[in-house]
C-alpha cells in the first residue's frame, strides 16, 4: 500500500507553478485580488483557500474559463485589453498579471488600468534581455527560440516582448513605484540577481514586479 502523502503536501500546491507561488507570497491574507489571465484558476483557488482572499479572475481562453467556473471560482471569460475598463477605481487590493503582459494588445494601457482598479499591481513577464535570447539573435541572426520563447515569430502570441530594463523605464515614464522586484529562472526559482538590474536583465528568465501608483510628489521608479 502506498504511503499517504504528508498532510501539508496538498497545500504546497503541488501543481501550482512556482512563479504563482512567488506571487502568492506577495499577497496578504484577506486581500481583494483580480487575476488577469488566470487560466484554470490555480492562483485564485490557492488564495481563496489558504489566505481567505476574495479572489476573482479573467481568462480569455473559454475552455480554461469554463474549467475555473466549474471549480466554483469567480472567473469571467474576458479580455484584459477591453474588460478592465469596466471595473471601478480601487476595486481590488492586488491586480495580478502573470506571464501575460507581453501578449496583450496594449500593455501600457493594461498596466494603467491595473493600477487604476487596484492599489497594487503584480506583473510577471518573460525577460527578452536574457543572455540566451541576445546570443541567439547576435550569432544566429534569427528570431530567438528558447525554452521561454518557444514559438516561431509568425505564430507567437507574445507580440510585445520587453526586457527588465525596458519595464523599469516604463514604470518611470508612467509614475509607478516598484515596491519589490525579482528575477527568476524558468521554473520560477528566485535568482540572486536583484542587487543589479544589469545582471538580472542578463541572467533572469522571468521577472516579477510589485507596483503601486506614485503618491503626489513622490519620484517613481524603484521604491
Amino acid at each position: 500500500m502506498p504511503e499517504a502523502p504528508p498532510p501539508d503536501i496538498r497545500y504546497v500546491a503541488k501543481n501550482m507553478r512556482l512563479d504563482l507561488r512567488l506571487i502568492a507570497e506577495m499577497i496578504p491574507a484577506g486581500a481583494r485580488v483580480l487575476d488577469i489571465g488566470c487560466g484554470d484558476g490555480t492562483l485564485i483557488e490557492h488564495l481563496t483557500r489558504e489566505k481567505g482572499a476574495d479572489a476573482r479572475g479573467i481568462e480569455i481562453d473559454m475552455a480554461l474559463a469554463t474549467r475555473a467556473v466549474a471549480a466554483g471560482l469567480a472567473v469571467i471569460h474576458g479580455d484584459a485589453d477591453t474588460d478592465l475598463a469596466f471595473y471601478p477605481d480601487g476595486a481590488f487590493d492586488y491586480v495580478v498579471l502573470s506571464r501575460t503582459l507581453q501578449a496583450v494588445e496594449r500593455p501600457r494601457e493594461v498596466l494603467r488600468q491595473m493600477l487604476r482598479i487596484g492599489r497594487h499591481a503584480i506583473v510577471s513577464f518573460p525577460n527578452f534581455g536574457h543572455w540566451q535570447v541576445r546570443w541567439r539573435l547576435l550569432v544566429g541572426g534569427r528570431m530567438p527560440e528558447t525554452e521561454t520563447w518557444d514559438r516561431p515569430w509568425y505564430e507567437t502570441p507574445n507580440i510585445h516582448p520587453c526586457t527588465i530594463r525596458d519595464f523599469f523605464a516604463l514604470c518611470r515614464l508612467d509614475g509607478y513605484v516598484v515596491e519589490r522586484w525579482l528575477a527568476a529562472d524558468e521554473r520560477g526559482l528566485k535568482a540572486p540577481w536583484t542587487r543589479s538590474v544589469w545582471l538580472a536583465n542578463l541572467f533572469g528568465e522571468q521577472a516579477l514586479f510589485l507596483l503601486r501608483q506614485a503618491r503626489p510628489g513622490e519620484a517613481p521608479g524603484p521604491g
Binding site: R56, M62, V69, A74, V75, I76, G78
Partner: peptide, 8 residues
C-alpha cells in the same frame, strides 16, 4: 464590484 463568473 460584484462577484461574478461568466462563460459563453
Amino acid at each position: 464590484a460584484a462577484n461574478v463568473s461568466f462563460v459563453e
